[in-house]
């Protein structure tokens, strides 16, 4: 299991489009991907889960990957969040 903390930098937070993009990217991996936000865990492969986290600009999020290719998955997931989803 690997994990890293990062911060949401896009203005609108994890709304529909970034959430779909995130889920799409991490679904490529077989490992589990969890977003830990304010001590609650959300399934990173589920758009509905990500949206219900209400993560906003400036929210701190810990990404936890567990399973095959967890390192690569974590790297890509963190990079995506830190890119601000092109917003």
């Amino acid at each position: 299991m690997v994990s890293k903390k990062t911060t949401i930098i896009n203005q609108q937070g994890l709304h529909m489009r970034p959430a779909s993009e995130f889920a799409k990217v991490v679904t490529k991996y077989d490992c589990n991907v969890i977003l830990r936000i304010n001590d609650r865990d959300f399934n990173g492969k589920s758009v509905m889960n990500i949206i219900s986290s209400c993560a906003k600009y400036g929210t701190e999020v810990e990404i936890i990957c567990d399973g095959p290719k967890e390192e690569e998955a974590l790297k890509e997931a963190v990079a995506l969040i830190e890119s601000g989803f092109g917003e």
């Binding site: 529909m16 779909s20 889920a23 799409k24 399934n43 589920s46 758009v47 509905m48 889960n49």
Partner: peptide, 16 residues
């Protein structure tokens, strides 16, 4: 159109 593309993501959601 992005709104509709979002609907595709919803129905493919593993939780759903």
């Amino acid at each position: 159109a992005e709104i509709l593309e979002g609907h595709v993501a919803i129905i493919q959601d593993p939780s759903i």
